[in-house]
Design a binder for these strands. Sequence first.
DNA 1: CAAGCGCCTTAAAACACATTAATATATGTA
DNA 2: TACATATATTAATGTGTTTTAAGGCGCTTG
Lengths: 120, 120
Amino acid sequence: MPVRLLVTKELSKFLGVLSHPHRIRIVEALRHEERDVNFLEKTLEISHARVSQHLALMRSHRLVVERREGRRVFYRLVQPELATWVAEGLTFIERDEENIQDMREAVQQVKDQWQAGEDT
Amino acid sequence: MPVRLLVTKELSKFLGVLSHPHRIRIVEALRHEERDVNFLEKTLEISHARVSQHLALMRSHRLVVERREGRRVFYRLVQPELATWVAEGLTFIERDEENIQDMREAVQQVKDQWQAGEDT
DNA sequence: CAAGCGCCTTAAAACACATTAATATATGTA
DNA sequence: TACATATATTAATGTGTTTTAAGGCGCTTG
């Protein structure tokens, strides 16, 4: 049955799009409202070329859509539930026996922040 | 706050581990029961060397744990809910306006299979 | 100790990343 | 209109990482 292979492959590409710190932070930044490239550039502290490249990738996989307004371009999540799903993924990270406790606390903290309404 | 950056980075690595068709299929294969390397080799139709390499990566990120039994090594998911979470991720794949309908059906089909009890 | 099973190392190919520069698009102004 | 500026995208390039395939190693059991 090639269907499941096809779907599995798509899924792996989708996960690949999310497997980058900047792109995760973009999902985070867009979880409640649309943002323009400039905002993301300042939030992530990276060049707008890089922001734009990340967004292009996310756009090509239909994670985000754009809306032009004058000279600015705003982006939003196609499916805002994506942010929730990603936050739930934090459940599964647990590494380095050493600082596992710190990590666990940090994860919980970030998870709470994501799911609460605050923007940082 | 470096905590969120740290967590974001960990999360991106975790997603990176999952962003490979074979590794997704390993998660799928282990979603209900433990399996040995030989089983996975036959299911995925790849060399056991590669299965082993994938498992090593997944092991190092604590997605799976091993259990030796004689000359065989069985693997299982550390957190079986991982499989459910991954299956939920299928919600977000939707590409290529062209065959979007086919894809949607295929996704639904695979999603149902994953969440039902059957093994294929 | 021989066979089966899984792991590890190595090297080449493929891919992703970051940087810089070039191009496009919209706005403001002389 | 022409020119300059602000914003964003795309292209080009060099670098680093991941994936893959191949071969050998080591443990376990019969």
